[in-house]
Design a protein around this nucleic acid. Structure first.
Length: 576
RNA sequence: GACUCAAUAGCUCAGCUGGUAGAGCACAUCCCUUUUAAGGAUGGGGUCCAGGGUUCGAGCCCCUGUUGGGUCACCA
């Protein structure tokens, strides 16, 4: 019996599977299929004068069909694009028997099926490069109808555009929306460009633990999990900084990692609970060197993607050509508020915040207030890449104090389009200072700051053995990809953004129905008619229900013995 | 977390003042036989997100919830 939960189109496609097998055709064959050309190659390199591509073998998904009797055109999509494929009955079926064309191709193939074809490339009367098919093979039958997206002169018709469906069923999005695929190809290109640059300089790509006993290296709320054998809590990492610096202690002069980090915080257009960060640490360097390194890296990435250094982000054109402007945090505040906060104490700063209408409370220390002023009044104005340098020491417990001013640290963030893109330090390698800074964090935590850092004593111990002067930099890959590809939502640069689980309608199982006397084979018929729970049927009119049941039996040719009106009446009475 | 918008056929969307649920694409049947989002004709397809309420009557009005989008807050 057909599954009554299926749509009509799905039932028809499942029936096609049966028909194909009857004809001796396996809709899911095991054998490999030899491919010797891509759509991209054929479209760009076919030349009728050279008469090339005369024995191609290609494979892909059917995304459109135009059938006109004994001649048909099919859109075949492979990894690289689409090409038109021409099926002519008498080319496919050279003998008397025309089943392969009339039945298999015309009736049993559908949009969405994956097929292999052999033939020769030619140009049609209307001038489109096409493949003339002499032989085709079904490689995988599709039994769920694909959205059909059409396009003409850059205008898209019937786009598959519901964000929920696009993110939940990314596979469908990728099939029907080619521009989506492009974003992810570029994402990989961004990472490869960076990786190549680091490798060329001899830095080592490494891997460090995702499950950490102390989630360090950043201020954020972690996910917590539990290890059964050790019977201890473990945290999913919020950063990999402390582990990479241990490797610098261990004697590597340059290490980097593309890491998935996890933060148990809000989700919005720019935050996903798991996200990708690249962190790099280089020994014997300082943050001035790292600024130059970062500029060079971003310029390379922009060039690799676009062939030029300018990128359009929203309404802004951002130029990643090095060098970028450098501005201290204090100067940035002076520039955007007119207030010079140099040397101010906590009370004076609190007054400044009040004057600027910035919300602060008593738990805020000096550093956090300065950061608030910057975030509120300056950050949004930094459209072109700008290095903001010299952050207050309270905000940066892993960063070395500024060589000229102990209240500041040698830290920079790179601001692009009003958002933070990179964060970098001259790393703190003084173990005694580091321990004190961790202890200050503990005090903040006691004061009520729920995202202050934990003390990592093993990390301090590593520093006690001596870490060379080092500069480190972290960059959010998701955000970078958004900038570089012009996407406005993080969900558009992640294949599988986090979503709430899908919920299915609640249904009673078959025993609930059989308990009131309904034969098991009728349960699906009840549910097809919307009676998903027995409880929900207690007030229905038995006569109307009887008609619906018999109607469904007839319509879907189920061949069941219809119940009598009295049967139905008894079932309903049994509920009470 | 707050506010706000949305959810109707496989997809994209209409649906008036509350009165028998519609279109295009897709699908099926037949005809045509080199088309370009588009060949022609006919037809089938619905838990109008779920659950309550108001009403003679709810896709539409009210309440609660679910999922998603947007804005803000929190958060880097």
């Amino acid at each position: 019996m057909m599954n009554l939960e299926l749509s009509e189109q799905e039932m028809i496609r499942r029936q096609s599977l049966v028909e194909l097998r009857k004809l001796g055709i396996d809709p899911y064959p095991a054998a490999k299929y030899e491919v010797n050309a891509t759509t991209e190659e054929m479209l760009s390199k076919f030349d009728p004068e050279k008469n090339n591509f005369q024995e191609v073998s290609i494979a892909g998904r059917i995304t459109g069909r135009r059938i006109m009797g004994s001649a048909s055109f099919v859109e075949l999509q492979d990894d690289k694009g689409k090409i038109q494929v021409y099926f002519k009955r008498d080319n496919i079926c050279t003998e008397e028997d025309k089943t392969l064309y009339n039945t298999v191709f015309k009736k049993l193939l559908d949009i969405g099926d994956i097929i292999g074809v052999k033939g020769n490339v030619f140009i049609t009367k209307v001038g489109e490069t096409s493949v003339n098919v002499t032989e085709f093979t079904i490689l995988s039958k599709s039994i769920k109808p694909l959205p059909v997206v059409k396009e003409k002169d850059g205008k898209t018709y019937d786009a598959f555009s519901d964000p929920e469906q696009r993110y939940r069923q990314r596979y469908v999005d990728l099939i029907v929306n080619p521009q989506v695929k492009e974003v992810f190809i570029q994402r990989t290109k961004i990472m490869n460009t960076m990786r190549n640059m680091f490798n060329d300089r001899g830095y080592l790509e490494v891997e460090t633990p995702i499950l950490q006993a102390i989630p360090g290296g950043a201020a954020a709320r972690p996910f917590i999990t539990h290890h059964n054998a050790l019977n201890i809590p473990l945290y999913l990492r919020i950063a990999n900084e402390l582990y990479l610096k241990r490797l610098i202690v261990g004697g590597f002069d340059g290490v980097y990692e593309f890491s998935k980090d996890f933060r148990n915080e809000g989700m919005d257009r720019t935050h996903n609970p798991e996200f990708t960060v690249m962190e790099i640490y280089v020994a014997y360097k300082d943050y001035n060197w790292m600024m130059e390194f970062t500029e060079e890296m971003l310029e390379k990435v922009a060039l690799a993607l676009h062939g030029k250094t300018t990128v359009k982000i929203g309404n802004n054109e951002v130029d990643f050509k090095a060098p970028y402007r450098r501005l201290t945090m204090i100067d940035a505040i002076k520039e955007h508020t007119g207030i010079d906060i140099t040397g101010m104490n906590e009370d004076q700063l609190r007054q400044v915040c009040k004057d600027l209408n910035i919300d602060v409370n008593d738990t805020f220390g000096k550093g956090k207030m300065i950061d608030e002023i910057f975030g509120e009044k300056c950050e949004g104005h930094m459209i072109q890449p700008t290095f903001i340098t010299d952050y207050p020491v309270e905000m940066s417990p892993l960063c070395k104090k500024h060589r000229d001013n102990p209240e500041l640290t040698e830290r920079f963030e790179l601001m692009v389009n009003g958002k933070e893109l990179c964060n970098a330090y001259t790393e703190l390698n003084d173990p005694i200072d580091q321990l004190e800074r961790f202890q200050d964090q503990l005090k903040l935590s006691e004061k009520g700051d729920d995202e202050a850092m934990f003390i990592d004593h093993d990390f301090v111990r590593a520093l006690e053995y001596g870490m060379p002067p080092t500069s480190g930099m972290g960059i959010g890959i998701d955000r970078l990809t958004m900038f570089m590809t012009g996407q406005e939502s993080i969900q558009d640069v992640l294949f599988f953004p986090q979503m709430r689980p899908e919920k299915k309608a609640q249904k009673d199982d078959a025993t609930a129905y059989t308990q009131i006397g309904i034969p098991e084979e009728w349960v699906a018929v009840f549910q097809k008619n919307g009676y998903n729970t027995v409880e929900g049927m207690k007030d229905v009119n038995p006569g109307a229900l009887h008609q619906k049941l018999c109607g469904t039996n007839k319509k879907h040719k189920l061949g069941l013995q219809n119940p009598s009106q009295d049967d139905v009446k008894t079932w309903i009475e049994n509920i009470k």
